[in-house]
Simulated assay, not measured.
Amino acid sequence: MKRGISFEIPNEYGTLLGEVLKPIDITVFSWRIGNGESYIVVDNELDEELFSEDKKAIGGAELKNLLENNMYYIIFSDLQAYPKGEFFDIETYEEFIESQCELILLVVDSCYVTIYSKNKETTELLYKNATECGFEDVKYITDENDTRIRLSAW
């Protein structure tokens, strides 16, 4: 069974998370912001954090605006999409499956992206988008090849 996808994005400034999530309507979700490190880029320099430390959740429209209308640099990112409602502390794939969370997006070391999705259509759209964007090493994550123990960027 397909759990999600993994691929590599360029290690550079840009709007890469916006590009990664482009095929889905991120505004219909509430997003839990996990531990991470990402910065807005101003005048080709790292500036304030993309996701402020005191904010653990963000609405989909606000996230879309952040990701599509700012230049930023991602070092680590941990985002979880929920239908409007409560958030859970998810650490394993099994907890993800049992939760209300619909999608988990992890970025590690600025370029390694992992996306878990409960929706098969969403997984296919994200896979197709990643290949069309020219991202490298695009693969499905399956029950057989998933080596991740924790669903966390840290």
Rank of each mutant, 00 (worst) to 15 (best):
V41L: 12
Y112F: 15
I5E: 03
I141V: 08
C133Q: 11
G4N: 05
Y140W: 12
G34V: 01
F87K: 00
A130H: 03
S110Q: 14
F7K: 04
K22L: 06
L50F: 00
S52V: 09
E136L: 03
L21A: 01
T114F: 04
S99G: 11
M1D: 14
R150Y: 00
D25Y: 07
T123P: 03
T92V: 12
L126T: 00
S38G: 02
V41I: 15
K22Q: 10
E12G: 15
E37A: 11
L46A: 09
C133L: 12
V113C: 03
R148G: 01
K64R: 14
D43M: 12
E132C: 11
I33L: 07
T123I: 08
K64V: 04
E91I: 03
I5Y: 00
K22S: 07
D137L: 13
F51P: 05
G34C: 03
R3T: 09
I115S: 03
L103T: 05
K128E: 14
E121L: 04
T123K: 05
D54N: 15
N11W: 15
S30H: 14
D109A: 13
Y73I: 02
S77L: 01
N145W: 13
R150H: 07
T114Y: 14
L151Y: 03
F88A: 12
K118P: 05
S6F: 02
R150C: 01
L21T: 04
T114H: 08
V41F: 09
D89V: 13
K84T: 07
V113A: 00
P10W: 08
M71Q: 09
K55V: 09
F51W: 00
N119H: 12
S117A: 15
S30D: 14
W154L: 11
W31M: 11
Y13F: 14
Y140S: 12
